[in-house]
Each structure stands twice: as C-alpha cells, then as structure tokens.
Design a protein around this nucleic acid. Structure first.
Length: 590
DNA sequence: ATCGTAGGCGCC
DNA sequence: AAAGGGCGCCTACGAT
C-alpha cells in the first residue's frame, strides 16, 4: 500500500523507505545572523561532531548531509522550519520537539524550557526566568551563561530570550540539546504501550509543522477584484474616508432601528439588542441568529437585524480592512498556521483562512495556467470512530460510500435519523430526535458506543485521555469547556461531551495530517502545492496540465495515509474522498 | 490605558 | 431536564 518513491515520513529527499533513519538524529539550529549549526551523532567509528557555517552555505551543507546520511533532522520548533522555508530549502520531514511534546503532554505550551523540564522530571513551576516575575520564581543571578543547562537541570533562561546573542558555538550547543530532548521523547513515545501509533504520529505531526511553515509563505490564491466585488455587494463600495465609513455604518444601523421605537439602541451591545427586541414584543433569552431564525412569523425588526448582522460581519471581519491586512499584492492571502491546537490537535490558522464565509470563496481562484485540486474526506468522523474503537459492525458499514445507509437499515430508521443519532453519539447530544435511535446504536454497535461512553465518563471524572494516535487530551477541572453558571453537574457533562468528541475529532485530525503531509511530498514533483488545509479538506494549487494526475494522487495518498495512520490496524475501515479539479474554490460543491 | 471575559458568528 | 466540540475574530464592558 506504500506508494513508491520518496517516503514522506521515514526518509529524506529522494531516499527509499528502507533507508529510514539510517543517519540517526541530527540536530539543526539556525539564526539569521549567526548562521547554522548541525550536530552529527557519534557512531561506532566516529565521535559526534558539529558543523557550523553562515546562512548562505546552509542549502549546500544540508543537501550533502541529506544525501550522505539520510538523517532525521531535529529542531526545537517551527521557527527552524520557517528559517528553512525562508532560505528556500525543502526537507521532506523532521523531528519537531515542540510539536512532539504537545502530543506527549497535551496542551499547547511547548517552549524549550518547559519541554526540557518535563522531559527531565523537573517541576515546571520552578522554571527560572531571566528576571524575577514573582516571589516564587527563582531569580537568576550570575551563573555561567555559556552553559545552556544550569546545575539545577533547568535551561539557562538567557538562552531563551529574544535578545540572546547567538554564536556558532552556542547554536551547536542548542542543536545538541534538541537532539537530547528528541531522544527522551522517543523513549516516552515508545513507552506508551497502549498507543502503538504514537511514534508514527510524532513523525507525521512533525512533517505537518514543515507544511505549516510552507503554508504561511505560500498563501492562498485569491483574486482581489473578485473579492472586492463580493464585499461591495454586502456593504457597498470601499469608503474613501473615515467619515464616509462612519456614514455607511450609520445608514446600516438606521435600516434596523427604523423598525423599532424611538430611542437609543446600540446594535453592537447584545443586552441592548435584547431590550430592543422586547420593545417590539420579541422575548428571547439571547439574540443568537439561530434562535431568531427559529421564530415563526418574525417581526420585521428581526429580519432587518439578521441582515444587519451579516453585513456587519463583512464590514468588521471579512471586508476591505481584512483584504488590506492579509491579501498581498501578489494575490495571496496569508496567515499563521499552527500544526495543532491545545485540545484535540486540529490545525489552526489566522487571517480568516479557517472560517472564510462561503460567499467569499468564489474569489479564491487558481492563478493563470493553474487549477485547484480540491478534496474532502467523506464522513470522516464516523469512519474514524469505526477504526479507533475496533467496532467491526461499524467498520462493515464503512465499506459503503454512504455509511449511514447500512446504519439506517440496521436501526430500522430513515437515513436522516440515523445520521443525527451517530453524530449525536459522537458529540454528546443525547436528546431530541436521535434519542430513540441512540438505543438502537447501542445494541447494534456496542463497541463503538462504549468507546464513546468511556471517553465521556473519563471527561466527567476529569481523567486525561489519549487519542488513537497518542495525543494527551487534558481534562482541566478548573477550566472546563462549556463553562456556564448552572453548576458543577453541567460542567461535568460538558467535560464528558468534550472527552467524547476529542477522541473522534483528534483521531480524525491525525489521519488528516498524515494525508496532508503525504500529499505535500507526492504532489511536489508535479508542481503541486497545498494552499489550504481545512480539517477534512485539502486545496492543492497545481499546474493545469497535471490536475488529473494530482487528483488521482490524492486518492492513492488517502489509502496510504489510512494504512500508515492505523499501522495496519484500520479494522478494514474504508476512507473516501470527494475530489474535483476546479478553477474556483466554490466550483466544487462539498 | 491595558487586560480578560462574554456574547456573538464565521467555518469544520 | 437538557446538554455537541474546536478554532479565530469582532465588539462592549468591567476590572486592574
């Protein structure tokens, strides 16, 4: 099931699968002024050595070492990946200490001092800072600044400061410490006996950091004229002055307020909106759109308010200012990408790349001579559930293109009810229409349902969880998701839903990233570049003449990803993708 | 003035 | 009894 050629996880440029890791862990640290340092490990015949040089020599040095050793490049964080991208260097994979630590320990914070302390069993509360920030943090005075590790075992905080003055020697020490951290991480990952895929996840998540660094530089092709035309349809032409913008704003407000009583109401203040609605006889607990849309025979004020909210969203978030800030003169929309969030591990992006309104998507147009290959995973979460829970009955359902069809037959309900029930089970919704069908699920798919119920119980009890790929999902009792004022029972229930959802969402994210990093490597020879990752959707920008080949490739990469992600334990679950070659993002209907 | 929080909404 | 989760981003507001 492994596509021949470059291995996107286990080897470096041009290397075969069989060469994986032959050169061992090789540390890399880069500073824009001090240059780079490469730390080679000791072997049976040689002692370890460090190579340093100026940035200009980096590409050649890495190419030679890559070919000679097929090493696994190790660095502290995406900053190094970004420096490589900046230098025009493309590596296939790496070991990113920060992202691996997020996998092992959960959460998002993974600065070197914290990672080092965790890997060495030191209390993170005792991490020293360069200046005393409170009474309990040990202040740093004196000491040997040339030593990156202090006598107490913690990293020397000056090395972590933005203004630390790097030298080639210091970069060498720093890269060596990254290798030491990676070695400890590998031990920790191998110790997760219940999560045999964890080492694999560490590699794919590391490669995803390379992808994130590239996504930030590459940007999403977006046609400015098309985008401005769409915005104009909502809020009119671009205002030529602040005064004009203010007048347009006042006019938009007046279109709503004329339906209500005389008086001052701030439409941007939810409690005042509630008062305004009450004044025309509309009583609602809150003013959320779905609640207002649920009103039958709505007051004209409600209609106007909902239209105002849509226009206001464009004006404030996805309007001219948004384009000016994030859309470059080269027609690329750029934001910052993160390989995982601090919860279940999905990717995140800024600049509206992950929540761009559908009405803006016709402006995402491939450049001349290029096409998009768009692919999204079909019914990814129930399929992932079937795989990770080991439920053979659900896995059999996943053999179908539409797995809700066999489920509905099994349950004796219509397809819509079956779908709501399955989604409800995964997301913790146990009431409403799906409640009856849920009992059917429990008897027909007991393995999957108890997998979810166990996660729910763990969440309620505040016990940490681990995804299929080994990511720790932390259950912080003081900072529960869905915190509200209805007391601890509600908070426990929210944590239960969180745990239930996190195992499915997190495993899906791991599969998705595995797919993405394989596509990244295999599409590159065709000139294909991933320009957007959207949880279960990939957008690849590719020369028009290779659109068909890359479309085929996305499908084979998915099969490979599923195989690698599950390590042959996928329980026979089939994963499917809807793939289309298009010119505009909006051309393919999900 | 600066910060965190809440309501709200966009996407998955 | 009833209850999806995640993220980023906007505004208003209260606390510091």
């Amino acid at each position: 099931m492994v596509t021949p050629g470059i291995d996107p996880l286990d080897s470096i440029r041009g290397a075969d699968v069989g060469r994986s890791g032959r050169g061992g862990l090789v540390g890399l640290a880069i500073d824009s002024t001090a240059g780079f340092a490469v730390v080679l490990p000791a072997t049976e015949t040689t002692s370890g050595s460090t190579i340093t040089g100026p940035i200009d020599d980096l590409a050649e040095a890495l190419a030679q070492l890559d070919d000679a050793l097929a090493p696994r490049w190790v660095w502290w964080s995406i900053d190094t990946a970004a420096a490589l991208v900046h230098a025009g260097i493309t590596l296939t994979t790496c070991w990113d200490v920060a992202t691996v630590q997020r996998l092992i320990t959960g959460g998002w914070r993974a600065d070197p001092a914290r990672v080092w302390a965790q890997l060495h069993g030191l209390a993170t509360e005792m991490i020293p800072t360069a200046g005393r920030i409170d009474l309990f943090t040990p202040a740093v005075t004196g000491g040997d600044l040339e030593e990156p590790v202090r006598p107490d075992g913690h990293l020397t905080p000056q090395w972590l400061a933005d203004d630390w003055s790097w030298t080639p020697t210091r970069l060498g020490r720093w890269a060596a410490l990254a290798v030491e951290a990676a070695s400890l991480q590998i031990v920790a990952l191998n110790a997760l006996a219940e999560r045999p895929m964890a080492p694999t996840t560490a590699r794919s998540e590391s490669a995803a950091e390379l992808l994130c660094a590239e996504l930030r530089k590459e940007g999403l092709p977006m046609n400015r004229a098309a985008a401005e035309q769409i915005i104009a349809e909502f809020i009119g032409a671009r205002p030529r002055s602040d005064g004009e913008a203010e007048r347009q704003r006042t006019l938009r407000d007046a279109d709503v307020l004329r339906h209500g009583p005389i008086g001052q109401f701030d439409l941007r203040n939810p409690s005042q909106v509630k008062s305004l609605l009450r004044s025309v006889g509309v009583e609602v607990p809150d003013t959320r759109a779905w609640r207002l849309e649920a009103l039958h025979d709505p007051h004209p004020l409600v209609i106007a308010l909902l239209a105002w909210r849509r226009a206001e969203r464009v004006a404030t978030t996805f309007g001219y200012d948004w384009l000016d800030e994030h859309l470059g003169t080269d027609g690329r929309l750029r934001g910052t990408w993160s390989g995982c969030d601090g919860a279940a591990g999905r990717m995140t992006a800024t600049a509206g790349l992950h929540n761009m309104p559908t009405h803006m998507r016709p402006a995402v147009i491939a450049e001349p001579g290029f096409v998009f290959v768009r692919a999204d995973l079909g019914q990814i979460e129930p399929r992932v559930l079937a795989a990770v829970s080991g439920d053979t009955a659900l896995a059999r359902a996943a053999a179908e293109d539409d797995m809700y069809a066999p489920v509905s037959t099994q349950l004796g309900v219509d397809r819509a009810t079956a779908k709501v029930a399955v989604l409800g089970a995964m997301y913790g919704q146990t009431s409403g229409h799906g409640a009856q069908a849920l009992r059917g699920l429990e008897s027909s798919y007991p393995v999957a349902m108890s997998y979810l119920a166990d996660a729910d119980l763990a969440g309620q009890a505040g016990r940490d969880l681990r995804t299929y790929g080994g990511r720790l999902v932390r259950m912080d009792l003081t900072q529960a998701a869905g915190l509200d004022d209805r007391g601890t029972r509600s908070r426990a229930a929210a944590r239960g839903r969180y745990g239930r959802n996190a195992l499915v969402q997190g495993a899906a994210a791991e599969l998705f990233k595995m797919w993405a990093v394989i596509v990244r490597t295999r599409a590159a020879p065709f000139g294909g570049r991933i320009v957007l990752c959207l949880h279960d959707e990939l957008l690849v920008h590719v020369p028009a003449e290779h659109g068909g080949q890359v479309a085929d490739l996305l499908d084979t990469c998915l099969a490979e990803a599923a195989h690698r992600w599950a390590g042959g334990r996928a329980n026979g679950v089939r994963f499917i993708a809807d793939i289309a070659v298009i010119r505009r993002w909006s051309d393919a209907k999900p």
